[in-house]
Simulated assay, not measured.
Amino acid sequence: MTRTRSRSRAARPAAALPLRTALVLSTVVFLSACTSSAEIESGQRADVAAEAAAAGETATPLVVDTSSEQADRVRTDEDPDAAGLVPATIAEDGVLRVGVVGSGEPPLGFLADDNATVVGSEVDIASLVADSVGLELEVVNVAWEQWPLALQSGDLEAVFSNVGVNAARLELFDFATYREGVMAFTAATGSDLSIEGPEDVAGLTVAVGSGTNQERILLDWNAQNEAAGLEPATLEYYANVADTMLALQSGRIDTYLGPNPNAVYQASVGEVDIVGTVNAGWPNTTYVAATTLKGTGLVDAVQAALQHVFDDGTYERTLQRWGLGDEAVDAPEVNPEVAS
């Protein structure tokens, strides 16, 4: 059985999370609930379902295990065809060394309750790939700015960490896609906002990260709105997500445009409502992908492994485990075309 290990030398300090955090998600809206596994096992699932039914919703309670053991992780079997594509230089030690940025919050990559083991949706996808190619998974906790050099130096063999495919990265790395790159508009709970396009942000105050894809989208939307005679959105910049959440809750801003996975988590614990989504490559489509050094040949094995878990259903189950079903792609693609 594939084991997941984190190198202690790369672990970064973060606040420990409770042993088991119940993220109760609805397929229509994200319900604000956080309960222990014991409470769920004693009947809370039925209570949540009854409340959702009364509100006309279909609820899918989801228990996310934040322990280092990850007993709830979805697993798959080895696919001989995928395993046969692994380059000999990588297969010889029986280990797939994968980098994941573990300094965030659920669901992507974060530290488990031992404050050392990296867990999350990105680790789970990497685990499925390792299972499929018959290798032991070794997870290395890396800082975001370190992963390109770590791949180029050979310290890492792949990166699974919400890496978006773009033209500049395609010059140096190979990619196998497994999620759409989606950004979400969040607002204070109970907000009546609904954002589907440029006209819906006209006149609003919107928080956004400087130099990000989402800032570029909002600047493009402002230009489009001004050309149509609409008032542009006012963009506000905050140093971190905590400050942004305070600004939302105090009414200083109307909405925040940031990564959808983080918004899913924040909504699941009742901090915000998701009021709209947009692809990070708007008006085009961009993807999140497993990243390998260009020319090593490993990307072909990763793509075959991903196809295996797409086919057997474990890919879909893994995304649902973390509330990311809306970001699913139909099939993994190697080095998709991107707009320059």
Rank of each mutant, 00 (worst) to 15 (best):
residue 34 C to K: 13
residue 191 S to W: 04
residue 228 A to M: 02
residue 114 D to L: 12
residue 16 A to V: 14
residue 61 P to Q: 08
residue 103 S to K: 12
residue 151 L to R: 05
residue 246 L to D: 14
residue 44 Q to C: 00
residue 327 E to L: 15
residue 263 A to I: 03
residue 67 S to W: 00
residue 160 F to N: 08
residue 325 G to E: 14
residue 137 L to C: 01
residue 39 E to Q: 14
residue 314 T to W: 04
residue 140 V to Q: 10
residue 50 A to S: 09
residue 133 V to I: 15
residue 132 S to L: 04
residue 124 D to H: 14
residue 280 A to Q: 13
residue 70 Q to H: 10
residue 36 S to P: 00
residue 183 M to P: 00
residue 211 G to A: 07
residue 55 A to Q: 10
residue 300 D to A: 05
residue 19 L to F: 10
residue 313 G to M: 10
residue 275 V to H: 00
residue 151 L to P: 05
residue 202 A to I: 04
residue 72 D to R: 11
residue 73 R to C: 04
residue 33 A to G: 09
residue 333 E to T: 15
residue 180 E to Q: 15
residue 94 G to Y: 01
residue 111 L to D: 03
residue 150 A to N: 07
residue 209 G to R: 10
residue 163 V to P: 06
residue 37 S to T: 07
residue 278 V to S: 02
residue 319 L to Q: 00
residue 29 V to R: 09
residue 261 P to Q: 13
residue 58 T to I: 12
residue 32 S to Q: 09
residue 284 N to P: 01
residue 311 D to Q: 12
residue 270 G to Q: 08
residue 332 P to R: 06
residue 26 S to Y: 00
residue 175 F to W: 12
residue 164 G to A: 15
residue 317 R to H: 08
residue 276 G to Y: 02
residue 328 A to Q: 12
residue 63 V to H: 02
residue 155 D to H: 13
residue 228 A to D: 11
residue 58 T to Y: 03
residue 72 D to W: 08
residue 129 V to Y: 03
residue 11 A to T: 14
residue 73 R to S: 09
residue 224 Q to S: 13
residue 286 T to W: 02
residue 160 F to C: 14
residue 39 E to W: 08
residue 199 E to P: 02
residue 207 A to Q: 11
residue 181 G to Y: 13
residue 139 V to Y: 04
residue 50 A to N: 05
residue 264 V to A: 11
residue 127 S to I: 01
residue 4 T to I: 15
residue 31 L to Q: 11
residue 26 S to M: 00
